[in-house]
Design a protein around this nucleic acid. Sequence first.
DNA 1: CCTCTTTCCGGTAACGTTACCGGAAAAGGA
DNA 2: TCCTTTTCCGGTAACGTTACCGGAAAGAGG
Lengths: 334, 334
Amino acid sequence: MVTIKNIAKELGVSVSTVSRAINNHPDINYDTKQEILETIKRLNYTPNALARSMIQKKTYTIGLMVPDITDLYFSAIAHDVEEVLSEVGYQIIYGNTGRNPEKEKNFLFNSLARKMDGLIVTPDFVDDDMIKWFQQIEIPVVFLRRRPPAELNIPFVDVDHYKGACQAMNYLHSLGHTNIGFIRMPEYSFTGLERYMGFKDSQEQKGIAPPYHVAIAEGKGMEDGARAMEQLLEMNPDLTAVFAGNDQLAIGAMEWMERNGIKVPEQISIVGFDNLELANLHWVQLTTVAQPCQDMGRKAALLLLDMLNEKNERPDSEILATSLVVRRSCKSLV
Amino acid sequence: MVTIKNIAKELGVSVSTVSRAINNHPDINYDTKQEILETIKRLNYTPNALARSMIQKKTYTIGLMVPDITDLYFSAIAHDVEEVLSEVGYQIIYGNTGRNPEKEKNFLFNSLARKMDGLIVTPDFVDDDMIKWFQQIEIPVVFLRRRPPAELNIPFVDVDHYKGACQAMNYLHSLGHTNIGFIRMPEYSFTGLERYMGFKDSQEQKGIAPPYHVAIAEGKGMEDGARAMEQLLEMNPDLTAVFAGNDQLAIGAMEWMERNGIKVPEQISIVGFDNLELANLHWVQLTTVAQPCQDMGRKAALLLLDMLNEKNERPDSEILATSLVVRRSCKSLV
DNA sequence: CCTCTTTCCGGTAACGTTACCGGAAAAGGA
DNA sequence: TCCTTTTCCGGTAACGTTACCGGAAAGAGG
């Protein structure tokens, strides 16, 4: 392997001089520099980032920990994070945890060992150990789609799922619906919980008494939505509207209704959450809550950059607002 | 920052001994080892992976270069690659190129500088420079979804898009269709080209004379499919079937036909490619070519692992077969 | 011609770790 | 008891780079 020493020997100069040539140091003669740069090209020399990082104490890597990269939202986030950070020379070490606490801890440990400069994480298991870990760590961290516990003074970027759910519910209420079912995402889902709270609180505020009809889906896919819809109607056949925790569940529910001869929106209205491209298919035309997922990664990356550049040691968190997209899956009762 | 030296000083032993404790070296007393490990925990010591990598000449990082992580296939690949490799201690540095040659070169340069142990790449611009680069590089590389040029002896993993397209065409031919239009993915798409060749060659072999009716979509989304469908029918209103380069284009085309009162499959049959979850929606029921995308990342990772472990310096490439999924978007003419 | 500044470069010490050599102490064998 | 082996540990040199100090040569100013 060709190192800085080889270059130096080749030209009969010192390693310091070669280093200066590489790093645009002012203390070097123009001709010498050109000669060195030429030799570097000729010998195909590549500087060793590890050695450099060791003494500069900066690796230009940042860690991105997500539960599932195949989830549309996280891949969008990964895309934007990479876009923003690669622009200024950082590289992304990505870890997929699958919501496995072991893998989460492993990734975080590695982040320390590899001396990453910063971290963007979506942790699912913030236990006491991990709180302590985050407290003692010295590098900038941004939480993504998770609110850090009170003990941790860490900025985060998240969508306001709660308010988004309220938007959807207000809309249904405004159309005269009161007997509304909810298809909840699996219990492991943090966002699912927040959306559920939005549903519940909205019903309460509207003065609608429990019991509230909620089916918890087994997953986040369309099949799960179909099964949940079936449960929901078994519990309460008189529903006039359904609010689903995400678009896929909503579409699954619509599909189940279609299969069972229930007309949407004539017999049952439905609202989703996410505003996937799917929701706009003309067969679907799902009214749904749009979240600005394309902005989240970017926002998180910019937040982290601020911290990295020491412009702002502890920037404010960002809570992004949702917006209701009205299509044709809801009918007015009034 | 706490280093191995701090640990050594704390206990009055040498750094060598501490290193031995960390690395399960046999030449160490059991009690000493326990004491050291305890101190390591107490002082929250984390070994510096950079320093370690420098002398061991192994970084346990592998680079994954994809055009677009938000593309369902690449996110699935990224997921599986991470799953396989993290299992054995590797971490993934991921780069999103957006098919930008500058970003591609940048990522590859960084891979060298950071002394990554291996590379899984989907390069879009393999020019002479890059061929030379791949030739001189000393680390294992696997091509993903791209066939390396003849000069490069690099294994690859890919789906047999060509044969897949032939499968679809054979099916349409077997139903009696001959006047078949093709919606081609944008020209930058390699897979799009292979699928197109499958279409063209099938028509030729069937004895159908040109001109073949092909619309090149501007993107890969549903909107693009709709526009392409319009073009196709303008060129040739007598089409009885359409083969779309991917499912999203196919669905966009179906949507356009629905909007324009053309019945599928009664008036026009349609076949897609990819077998997205979408294709199975009951409104859609798209006949399509399924590719085993979930296997690709895994296969590529395993190939790379073989090379990393020097079990196999140059493993065989893998070409994965597709399968036709028949649903209800095609009608027989006979 | 002398001093002072500027320009440029070499040498050396770090960064944190592991590899390797050599050796003291303990244990084993006769 | 003496020799040999085993067990365990310390010291030192790397790995490839940059930071920093010091100094030679060249130019500037009087």
